[in-house]
Nucleic acid binder design. Sequence first.
DNA 1: TTTTTTAGGATTATTTTTCTCCTATTTTCT
DNA 2: AGAAAATAGGAGAAAAATAATCCTAAAAAA
Lengths: 135, 135
Amino acid sequence: MQITRETDYAIRCMLYIAASESGSAVVGDISEAQSVPRTFAAKIMQKLQRAGLVKSKRGVKGGYFLTREPSEISLLDIIEAIEGPLSLNICVVDKNSCDRVSQCSVHPIWVELRDIFAESLKRYTLKDLINLNTP
Amino acid sequence: MQITRETDYAIRCMLYIAASESGSAVVGDISEAQSVPRTFAAKIMQKLQRAGLVKSKRGVKGGYFLTREPSEISLLDIIEAIEGPLSLNICVVDKNSCDRVSQCSVHPIWVELRDIFAESLKRYTLKDLINLNTP
DNA sequence: TTTTTTAGGATTATTTTTCTCCTATTTTCT
DNA sequence: AGAAAATAGGAGAAAAATAATCCTAAAAAA
Ligand code: SF4
Ligand code: SF4
C-alpha cells in the first residue's frame, strides 16, 4: 500500500525541474541532484513525457521542461503518469480481475476510497511543494 | 499503490467469520467459501491471530472466532494486521530509509495523507460490510 | 561534423508476493 | 486410551513486480 520507489523518484525529478532557474534540466543534473540512478532517471523522464507532463529538447542546451505551470501539476498527475490509474485494489481498475465483484460488499468501498484519496492527492501541486522549501 | 491479494483475502476471511451463524469457522470452510487457497488462508488466519483480531480453538468443533464485535473491527485493523503499519511511502514508517527526510518537502505530505487515509479506513467496520449484503 | 542529449528496446538483478509442504501440537469425541 | 479434527509454525519454491542497467539510434546545437 505504498507508492513505488520509481514514483518517489519521479516526484523528485519533477520537483527539481520545477524549482530550477531556467525551467529546464538535463537528465544528468536531475539524477545527480536528486540521487536517482542516471539510467533509471532517463526512463522515468520518458514515462513522464509520454504522460504529457514534460517535453524534451535534444542536443546541446537541451533537457526536459514542464508542459504546464507547477501550480497545474499535482501529485496525482505524477503518480498516475508512473503507476497508471490510481486504485486501491485491483478490482477498482479492472473488473474482470475478480469474479466476486458483483456480489462483493467491499468493492464499492474501494471505489469510494479511491475517489477520496485522489482528491487529496490533487490538492498538492508542484508549486505548493516548492514553496514549502523556499518560503 | 494497492493493497495486496493477501490483504484482500484477509478481509474476505474476516467477513466470512463475522457473517457466520455460529460466529466461528474452520479454515477449510473459509477457504472454500471465499476462494482463498487453503494453505494460504491458514497462514493469513495466523497473522490475524497474532494481531489479536481472532482467536482459535483447536481440535474437533474448533475454528477461528473474532475477539471483538464486528462493529469494532475496521478495515484499517485488518490491513495493518497483514501489511503492518499503514504508510503511503517508505519514509513515513521508517525515517532511516531515506537520507533526504530532513530536507524533503514531500515527506510531511505523506505523513498527513497517511492520517487522512487511515481515518477513512477506520470508518468502515465488518458490521457495515455485512449489513450491505443483508440489509 | 562533432558534441551533447534524449529515445527506446532488450535484458538483468533484486525484492516482494503468493503461495505449498511437512511435521508438530492441541482438543474433542468415541 | 485412541482416533480424528483442527490449528501452529517453519522452510522454502514459484511467480510476479520492482528497480535497475546496457546498448545503439536519433536529433539538435555549436
Ligand atoms: S473480493 Fe471484492 S474487494 Fe476483493 S477484489 Fe474481489 S471485488 Fe474487489
Ligand atoms: S525523498 Fe522525501 S518523500 Fe521521498 S522517500 Fe525521501 S523523504 Fe520520503
